[in-house]
Amino acid sequence: EEAIQNFKALLSDMVRSSDVSWSDTRRTLRKDHRWESGSLLEREEKEKLFNEHIEALTK
């Protein structure tokens, strides 16, 4: 649960536009030290959280 919250915070800070792809964003996020705290999450979970974040940005 904490890993999810940390990853959501990372997305909020780093992803402000809804027209970015997961693969491009992932490359950028990996450069942030907080990426490692999400290592407990599966890749699919990270992508799902990313997609939810993008959906929220479009509303």
Rank of each mutant, 00 (worst) to 15 (best):
E1N: 00
E1V: 06
E2R: 11
E2H: 02
E2Q: 09
A3L: 06
I4P: 01
I4M: 05
I4N: 04
I4D: 03
I4W: 00
I4C: 02
Q5T: 12
Q5P: 02
N6S: 13
N6K: 13
F7W: 03
K8S: 00
A9G: 08
A9M: 08
L10T: 05
L10C: 00
L11K: 07
L11N: 08
S12R: 14
S12P: 03
D13M: 01
D13I: 04
M14C: 13
V15F: 00
R16I: 10
S17A: 05
S17K: 07
S18N: 08
S18K: 11
V20F: 02
V20K: 08
V20S: 11
S21Y: 00
W22H: 08
W22A: 04
D24F: 00
D24K: 05
T25E: 06
T25Y: 10
T25W: 07
R27A: 13
R27M: 11
T28R: 14
T28S: 13
L29T: 04
L29S: 01
L29Q: 02
R30D: 07
R30C: 15
K31S: 10
K31L: 12
K31D: 10
D32N: 02
D32R: 00
H33N: 11
H33Y: 09
R34I: 02
S39H: 11
S39V: 10
L40N: 13
L40C: 13
L40P: 12
L41G: 03
L41C: 03
E42M: 13
E42N: 15
R43E: 15
R43A: 15
R43Y: 14
E44V: 09
E44R: 10
E44C: 09
K46N: 00
E47T: 03
E47Q: 08
E47S: 02
E47L: 06
K48N: 07
L49G: 02
F50K: 04
F50A: 04
E52R: 05
E52W: 00
I54R: 09
I54Y: 01
E55F: 07
E55C: 08
A56T: 13
T58C: 08
T58H: 09
K59D: 10
